[in-house]
Write a protein that binds this DNA or RNA. Structure first.
Lengths: 187, 187
DNA sequence: CTTCTTTCTTGACTAAAGTCAAGGGTTGCT
DNA sequence: AGCAACCCTTGACTTTAGTCAAGAAAGAAG
């Protein structure tokens, strides 16, 4: 599984043999069973994750109702830095998960030994940021129906892995509305 | 104006005299008049901006209509890295602007001379990311009315600087709806 | 001050999402 | 097999946003 990470990193920057060894020995790779919570509301997040296998759901609880705001699947990073304040959200493993886990100590240690890794981190972060800003813009501009169609196109796998009521929430609507949108489109 | 940037950076990390000199001499600070476009759709973005004074609006054009998706004001960064593909959005100065402008060459030059600056960049980027993810989540979970009330609280200055129809768009609704929401709340 | 333009509000109507309640389907458990 | 839990859909009704059109209000320009 370390292979996956190294392959991913080498898409962006040269990975020296020393760095590769360090990554393999860092013990970043972890496994979690379906149903496990990587994080619960009230806790302070100190770890961040990079999903290698499986699907993780981020959700809040608003008025006793779960509100799903993100799904993280293969090759996606879960931004996990809170600024010392407790989180208000949950990270739930919807499937058995394999992930690379980072924490501040490990990171600063690795960044010091391998500055290129910090550079990589910054570049990846900027690119994620750009993607996220785009997504947010598109979400604002689109109707619920358009959002549904876009998701069908961009992440069809989600519809095989995740219940529709969580997808509805992710689209910012109620399950009944999603059901009617689907019916409307079917005709 | 360079003072502002240095002050901002030193909130996060030590700024050595050498770094301070380098920043002051880098010529990053620029001014733009109200009405100027920092970026237009179709162009490829290579610069990124940090607003020191004024308000910049980001908008798309969808079905011949302008759709505002962000306002950037004092001490906010405008993420500007596109991956070689032309942008689909505009960056318009709603007021006279003073901004720090970065470009890849200057950045990699500075990062090489002052690695701490790249570290700062990564940390700031991560924190922006976290903020942005939170905002997106809240947007998804809130009704238009709740979004309006939240914006009133979090960025009251916008209502003094920006026409309501652009704010409506920013909230993901039509100007008529915003008008009715305001009326509803007034009572 | 007058004119022109842009912005904001209102009204009447349509379309779509929210709410509440019920029923069918599936899955998983014992 | 039978029960329970969860998920998805439907129906009837309410609420709210979208649309189109018109007019009032506020700003900018001559």
């Amino acid at each position: 599984m370390e292979d996956e990470i190294i392959k991913y990193i080498s898409n962006y920057t040269e990975v020296s043999p020393e760095l590769e060894t360090a990554i393999r020995q860092s013990g970043m790779i972890r496994q979690y069973p379906k149903g496990h919570f990587l994080l619960e509301a009230g806790q302070i997040s100190i770890e961040c994750f990079f999903v290698l296998k499986g699907c993780v759901r981020r959700f809040y609880i608003k008025d006793t109702e779960e509100r799903t705001t993100d799904f993280y699947t293969e090759m996606q990073a879960i931004p996990g830095i809170s600024k010392g304040t407790p989180n208000e959200y949950y990270l739930e493993c919807l499937e058995d998960i394999i992930a690379a886990v980072g924490n501040p100590e490990l990171e600063s240690d690795m960044f010091q030994k391998f500055p290129i890794l910090e550079s990589f981190s910054r570049v990846i972060g900027e690119s994620m940021m750009t993607t996220y800003v785009e997504e947010f813009s598109e979400f604002k501009m689109a109707s619920p129906e358009e959002r549904y169609l876009k998701l069908l196109e961009s992440r069809p796998d989600l519809f095989q892995r995740v219940p529709l009521n969580q997808i509805a929430s992710y689209l910012g609507i109620k399950p009944e509305s999603l059901s009617r949108i689907r019916k409307r489109i079917m005709k």
